[in-house]
Design a binder for these strands. Structure first.
Lengths: 234, 234
DNA sequence: TGCATTATTATGTACGCACATATTAAAACG
DNA sequence: CGTTTTAATATGTGCGTACATAATAATGCA
C-alpha cells in the first residue's frame, strides 16, 4: 500500500510514525512494531528507525523500554521547550531599546526562604542586588538577586552599575543545573513603584536558582511588568 | 594530558565538551575543534562526536553550521522543557483526588479575540464550554474553552458532563501544532467566585490554541487557583 | 573590478554490523 | 508452588564508510 520512497530520511520515518499515531492507526497504549519490522516495512536501516523513534519519544508521544518495545503513550504529556534568553537579548530581540539601572547592592542577612535556598548559615550575610531592566525606557522587569559570594568570590570584581547581574553571571559563572518556577503574584508597594503600576496588580514572576556541583550559587526573582506573556509553540 | 578512557560513550564526550565550555577552555564565540579532530583526540568515531555535539547544540550551548563548524554560543539561550500533562493526571500525580464539574456548555458567537484566534466568520456560533477541575475537593483550575465544531464534528457525541473537554480532546482529536502562553492576570468576579478567592487576586493563566493542518481546532484559557506554580529544571 | 561559477569543507545523515544493556519470559530448583 | 536462575529479545550505542548538503572560499569571466 506504500510506494517505494526515493529516499528514507529519519525525518520522513518520524513523520510517518507521527501520522499513524495521530490517526489512531496505533492507538494510545498499543505497542508499535519493532524497529526491525519498521525498518523492513519502510525500507531503511534499523538505525534510521531508531533515530526517528528516539525523536518521537522525546516529544513524549511514545514510551520506549528495552525488551518491552515501544508503546504509544497513554497520556501524551506534551513537552514544550521554553527559551530563556539573557534579559537584554530578550528585549533587543523584540526590537526595543534596552536599559538597565542598578537599584541597590549590599551585603545582608537573607530572609529565611532565601537562606534555605542558598544553604547559608543563620546570621551570615550574602550579596543582595536589586536592579531594573527597561524596554524602550519603560520598566520591564525587576531583578532581585542573592548571590553566595563565598561560592563566587570573583563577584567582588564585578561592576553591577555597568552590567546587570543577569548578564555578568551568564558571561562569567559556569553552572551545571538549576530550577525555575513561574507564578503569578500581586505587586507589593515597592514593586508597583518601580514598575509604574498599582499595588496589588497581578505580575508574572520567575524564580530561578542555579547550582554548581550541587551547591547553590545564586537565586533570583524576576518580577515582570503587568501584561508580560511567555509564549512558546508545541 | 588525558588518560585513555576504557570506553568512549557519546555521553562522556558530551560531558567533556560541556566541561570545557563551562570552564571557558572554549570561550563564548570561539570555534570549537572539528568533529574529526575531537574524534581523534578523544579516541572515538566521528559519528559519536556528532551525536554528542548534536546534544550540546540542542541545549543551546553551541551553534553548528555546515562548513562553518561549531561555535560556543555567545548568548547561551537556556532551553527548558515544560511538561504539560492532562489536568487530571497532573492532579493525580501529586497524590490528590481529582474532581471535575461541567459549568456550562452552549453555542454562542465568540468574542472578537476568540473569533480571530479560531478564524471564525462574524456572527457564527461556536461551541463554548466552561468547566472546573478540583484537587482534593479544592478548586484547582477553570477551563474556559471554545471549540470549532465545524472542524471537530464528532464533538457532538461527547458527554462533557462525564469527561472534561481537556481529556476528551487529548484522547480523541489529533493535532499537529499549537501555541501556549503563560501570563498573570487579576481574577475577575466570576473567576474569583469559582476559585474561592477575592476579585482582583493574581492568578496564573495559560492560553493554548491547537491546530491541525494550519486550521485552529480549539482554544482554551486555563485560570489556576492562586498560589499555583509551574516548576521545571534546567 | 564586480559578479557568476566552481571547488572546498564541515556538518548531516544513511547503512550495516557488532555488541551492550535492560527487561521480560522461560526454565530450573527448592 | 513460590523463588531463583537462565535464556531470549528489543532497544541503546559505537564504529567506519559513503555520500548529501549547505556555506564558504577560490576561481574565472565579462
Amino acid at each position: 500500500m506504500k510506494r517505494s520512497e526515493q529516499k528514507a530520511t529519519w525525518q520522513s520515518i518520524e513523520a510517518e510514525v507521527l501520522r499513524r499515531i495521530r490517526l489512531r492507526e496505533w492507538a494510545p497504549g498499543d505497542p508499535i512494531p519493532h524497529e526491525d519490522a519498521l525498518a523492513r516495512e519502510l525500507g531503511c536501516a534499523r538505525s534510521t528507525v531508531n533515530r526517528a523513534l528516539r525523536s518521537v519519544a522525546e516529544k513524549g508521544l511514545i514510551e520506549r523500554r528495552r525488551r518491552a518495545g515501544s508503546h504509544v503513550a497513554l497520556n501524551p504529556v506534551r513537552r514544550v521547550t521554553l527559551n530563556i534568553p539573557v534579559l537584554r537579548q530578550e528585549i533587543e530581540d523584540r526590537g526595543a531599546t534596552y536599559g538597565y539601572v542598578l537599584i541597590s547592592e549590599d551585603h545582608a542577612v537573607p530572609p529565611a526562604p532565601i537562606r534555605a535556598i542558598l544553604h547559608s548559615p543563620p546570621d551570615t550575610s550574602r550579596l543582595h542586588i536589586r536592579a531594573m531592566h527597561f524596554a524602550d525606557g519603560k520598566p520591564h522587569v525587576i531583578e532581585d538577586r542573592w548571590i553566595d559570594d563565598t561560592q563566587i568570590p570573583q563577584v567582588s570584581a564585578a561592576d553591577f552599575a555597568a552590567i546587570s547581574p543577569n548578564e555578568w553571571l551568564v558571561r562569567t559563572v559556569p553552572f551545571e543545573s538549576g530550577d525555575i518556577s513561574f507564578l503569578a503574584e500581586a505587586a507589593n508597594g515597592e514593586d508597583a513603584n518601580l514598575l509604574g503600576c498599582m499595588t496589588g496588580d497581578p505580575v508574572f514572576v520567575t524564580e530561578r536558582t542555579t547550582r554548581q556541583g550541587g551547591r547553590p550559587l545564586t537565586t533570583v526573582r524576576l518580577v515582570f511588568a503587568p501584561g508580560h506573556k511567555v509564549k512558546t509553540q508545541i
